[in-house]
Design a protein around this nucleic acid. Structure first.
Lengths: 202, 202
DNA sequence: GTCTATACCGCGATAGAC
DNA sequence: GTCTATCGCGGTATAGAC
């Protein structure tokens, strides 16, 4: 009957789910406390404030994601294999962490995040490395020439949107977009997308 | 010195901008009133409640968008021309109404919108018509065979994301993603995307 | 480590003067 | 049509008992 997670972990877990679905302003400490099953003031024993909880959730999320991508990149692979590896790693991370995706998306929408996390600047090194990779492969003739920056942005949008907008997608498709076969079809499509954009036609 | 817009219009305009940037919960009537230059109770002379203002903004937005797409579709065109026309119409509408895009995106993220607008169900007829169109063209051999549903979703994500996430993109790119030449490059890329996915290779 | 009690503020909304 | 004044609610945060 006991939850093996510490209270602190439970708070972060429930807060993550609520922030994802209702946003920061739409989530009250009461909501989080009720989800955990404790009284509201107890939350503030573990964290200094609501902002504090949010920052913790977000930085943890960004850390998990970058770590995953770094691991995928460590493997020394040629052009196609690297694309496959990073795409697979990202896709798997997204499907395992749908809440994080929606939190990040909300951050991307807001002009001046009251919490002072500049997502664009944080992700910029990864973006630059990705575009540099595609540019290099294109110049070497292993990939067809496309605009590498827009290619990365399109991949980002095509991947992120499927997971972030799944609430709307369920209404749009009439079925659960996170069903196993649906997810596989989505992944196959993304692979096809990059193949069609990049595979040289002899 | 006089603003030609009626107070009512001004309220809707300012509310739209604020809802886009801060979300519904993140925007107070005080914020809107200050932006318009009136006192808070004056807002409620024109609208019954904050919910009322939001609903007005959103339904107006959806109406504008569907009207634009319908106009583009009215032209009787063959496969490629229709794709070009709808893509162009959507792109132009998005660039002219970046606030609406972010409001819609926020709706797509939220499980139970407190305002009872089910975006997925609303857009479903358009989605079905789009996938049916691609399927027909593919079966007729005018387009290469792809998964028509995922193709539409990818187009939706690639198009919407560039406009909805422009705050983050500015940080990511280091320049203004809405600069004229940037927008043109984005549009060209989207055309290329559909060409590469659909153009039959003889 | 978790609770009760409480302080304090900003919010949406209403009533009524002008 | 716009204002001032005010209400009541729910929010975050703090202090202190157990």
């Amino acid at each position: 009957m006991e939850d093996p997670r510490s209270t602190r972990e439970q708070i972060l877990d429930e807060a993550r789910a609520l922030f994802a679905n209702q946003g920061f302003e739409g989530t009250s400490l009461n909501d989080i406390a009720a989800a955990v099953g404790v009284k509201r003031p107890s939350l503030l024993h573990y964290f200094g404030s609501k902002d504090d909880i949010y920052r913790q959730v977000l930085s943890e999320a960004v850390l998990d994601w970058t770590e995953r991508v770094e691991n995928a990149r460590r493997v020394e692979l040629n052009g196609w294999a690297l694309v496959d590896e990073v795409l697979r790693a990202s896709f798997d991370f997204f499907r395992e962490n749908p809440d994080i995706i929606r939190i990040v998306r909300r951050e991307a929408l807001t002009e001046h995040s009251p919490l002072g996390i500049d997502l664009g600047t944080t992700l910029r090194p990864y973006y630059n490395r990705a575009t540099a990779f595609f540019r290099r492969e294109m110049e070497a003739g292993r990939f067809k020439t496309q605009d590498p920056e827009h290619l990365v942005l399109t991949g980002y949008g095509a991947l992120l949107t499927y997971f972030s907008d799944h609430v709307m997608l369920r209404g749009l498709l009439g079925t659960d977009p996170f069903a196993e076969d649906r997810l596989e079809a989505r992944y196959d499509h993304l692979v096809t997308l990059f193949r069609e954009m990049l595979e040289p036609t002899p």
